[in-house]
Design a protein around this nucleic acid. Structure first.
Lengths: 191, 191
DNA sequence: AAGATATTTCAACAATTACTGAAAATTCAG
DNA sequence: CTGAATTTTCAGTAATTGTTGAAATATCTT
């Protein structure tokens, strides 16, 4: 399997990007290749197309599986394992976000919470805790919001995004309504 | 300058996280230290606190400056350069997002656009272009939306986030209104 | 169960990235 | 302009991370 120049450019760029994001080049290239492939590929095909050793591909696929970014399947009458990337790009985006949350955000939040429990001994610690609290709240708010919004179906999500900053009109309307009824209405604040 | 255990834990965690994100450990630790510091620090103080060489700190600060994540200032009667992290965590978040966009997203979008201009020769290329178009559109939509929303002031942004998935109510209202007036209203779709 | 085919593991090696000390460059006070 | 204080550069080295082939393991077929 040889890659056309178009595909090759994409694969190389993606590999390069991957390495800037803490994902190694091989893994990035494998994923890019699967992403554009017309049909599922087996490890030997990938090794040949990308010029990596079979064992390197094996490790890369293991990594991608752990991120739930590739699907494993079998083709009738073929013993080899075939891999593919999910069709729906929004689903891919979701998976990526979920995994990153689980691996990076959650441990960070937990570390921050622990640090906030300690009794500050010095002025420096008191100040540091204030800063950690700000960071904690920002991360928590952002990720809670994100997981909330991600539950929307792709169509609604896209509508919302196309709206851009205009969503604020909703806030204005809400404020006006609340003002009109004496602001005793429900408040959705979580904190 | 020695760090209290609380601060040390945070600094080490942040350094570790940094290395998962393609930022090196030193840079992550420097930033963490500045983030919690009560007052601006000079390079020697950081070198001592973190146990890195003076030259390593110098390189790290250069990197952080290029990301616009630290401010350089001078203290009266002191020739040395002092550094600090911005106060406002939302501003930090914005800066980070802008820089990442400039360095990673924009080049990727440009590569995708180029690839989409080529005339597909084979069926494989035709399919690949379809996929690249999906990726392009997702990235473009997401980043346009993001930069739009980031223009909002911190207060509005937080209100919006606390709303979470409930923003969709806005869409429902909008749909109802449009329905009522025969759907000839303005459409904000960009594409 | 044997043999063929396919996949994974892992120790050795390669490549990349991080870090340092010494030297060079810059900045500032007198 | 001189020289002391400070910062930056950079070549060499250390540490980390990536890659491979060979061996081990697993899976299927007959």
């Amino acid at each position: 399997m040889l890659m056309s120049p178009l595909i090759q450019t994409f694969v190389l760029h993606f590999g390069e990007m991957g390495s800037r994001w803490g994902i190694n080049r091989t893994v990035g290239q494998i994923y890019a290749l699967l992403f554009v492939a017309e049909r599922p590929l087996n490890a030997d095909e990938m090794a040949e197309a990308l010029g990596f050793s079979r064992s390197n591909i094996s490790m890369g696929l293991k990594e991608l599986m752990s991120w739930r970014l590739v699907k494993l399947q079998h083709l009738p009458g073929d013993r080899r394992e075939y891999f593919s990337a999910p069709e729906d790009v929004w689903a891919i985006f979701r998976t990526l976000a979920e995994e990153r949350r689980k691996r990076e955000i959650d441990p960070t939040l937990s570390m921050l919470r622990d640090a906030l429990l300690a009794e500050p001994a010095t002025s420096a610690e008191k100040h540091a805790q204030g800063r950690l609290r700000e960071m904690h709240d920002l991360i928590e708010l952002t990720t809670d919001w994100f997981s909330d919004v991600q539950k929307l179906d792709s169509k609604t999500l896209m509508q919302l995004m196309k709206l851009g900053g205009k969503v604020t009109k909703f806030l204005e309307i809400k404020d006006k309504l609340l003002l009109g009824m004496g602001s005793k209405g429900e408040d959705d604040n979580k904190h």
